[in-house]
Design a binder for these strands. Structure first.
Lengths: 226, 226
DNA sequence: GTCTATATACGGATAGAC
DNA sequence: GTCTATCCGTATATAGAC
């Protein structure tokens, strides 16, 4: 599977997710026609990510959002009841896409080497397809309320534990060299993180997500000796 | 040199730096007694980092800062003329400490292996000693004005080029295995970054900065084959 | 040098017309 | 469903007393 193919799948699953977002927020969404809601939510979320990634969610005024999304202040407030709720909706939706895709694509890989490769590639592909949100999520995590912040932390630790599990499995099978599995998993995560945190740098250097993925895998091969 | 020893040196050089900060801002600082200025600037900067790292610089109100620093609104404005100028002052000062210390401690190391080790340890020690600022600087970079943002980016690329230079040297000498030197440097930076971005995680797991430094060095040894 | 009190503006949110 | 106009709270910044 190439990145191009992967990207198509993610785009499709996004459509379903909007329907869930609407269902979960029936009370606050005063707009009834589903097609309208999907269209406008896409505009709104896109605008939020664009503005926030430039100057931060707190610094984004509702007037900014109104201008960028093309919807009036009044119209915006028919989709959510407060700026905080908007943030929460966005987080829930994007995390849902992200986690579901990862779960769905969980390696049918048979060997540990293949599992490790699948985990690295899938996560990088996801963060490539949804880079604005991954960046946003990392940068705004501390501005979320406690419930949402906890969800973000748990999600982060979960990813780490996925890598840790694969490494331990490989060590038990005698395929990976003995190393601190948790610390290794943590470092892997740091490497993958850089792909969406420093996107501008890699883009300028014309490094593709596939090249980056191969490189990190080489790193792991050398360290784990496989 | 242990981290404890290193930390003492940094603390001392901080004192000098305050005098420079004062000198550079003679016009806006209406307070004359140097001792008072140093004392209050320390309070102010400490409070800014504390509050901002919890909820972001933009979300920190001057009332928050007044409460946390113990200075009144009026008093605060005798040290800077706007919230933006406060940010700029803080960035200039902390970056100055950081860059100077790195430069001063630039490896007298003779071999490339030693140079690489020195660079890894020094940067980690620095980010450990000044963790609140390193975190702040990463998180608030996009909120700076263009001039300051450019300085931050340049500083980031400079660090990368230091690592790249060492790697190339080692390769020329035939001591390091052939790898993409720039991409390797970039990944090293990502690993070091994680130490201050995910500090809470490593603290909870009782991983010391020295352990972390040794671990990243092991990673590099495996990859570069030395 | 530091305080309290306040001018002024800007942001989130809503009412009510169309 | 969407818009314009506006309320009202809170933020930055400053004036002037001590």
């Amino acid at each position: 599977m190439t990145y191009a193919e992967f990207n198509k799948i993610v785009t499709i699953s996004k459509k379903d997710i909007y329907q869930e977002t609407i269902a979960e927020n029936r009370e606050t969404m005063r707009v009834k026609k589903e097609k309208t809601v999907v269209k406008n939510l896409e505009k709104i979320f896109g605008a939020v990510l664009k503005i926030s990634n430039r100057k931060g969610f707190k610094a984004m005024s509702m007037r900014d959002l109104s201008r960028e999304s093309g919807l009036s202040m009044g119209a915006l407030y028919t989709y959510f009841s407060s700026k905080d709720e908007l943030l929460e909706m966005l987080q829930n939706q994007q995390r849902a896409i992200s986690e579901r895709t990862l779960r769905e694509r969980v390696a049918d890989a048979q060997t540990v080497q293949a599992k490790l490769k699948a985990a690295v590639f899938t996560h990088l592909y996801l963060s490539e397809a949804m880079q604005p949100w991954y960046y946003f999520s990392f940068m705004e995590a501390k501005n979320l309320n406690k419930v949402e912040r906890d969800k973000a932390v748990r999600s982060d630790l979960h990813l780490e534990s996925v890598f840790e599990g694969i490494i331990q499995l490989g060590q038990e099978e005698g395929i990976f060299r003995k190393r601190d599995s948790q610390l290794t998993a943590s470092i892997i995560q740091a490497m993958l993180q850089d792909w969406y945190l420093k996107r501008y740098k890699y883009a300028k250097r014309n490094i593709s997500v596939d090249q980056y993925a191969e490189f990190t895998l080489e790193f792991l091969k050398a360290f784990l000796g496989f």
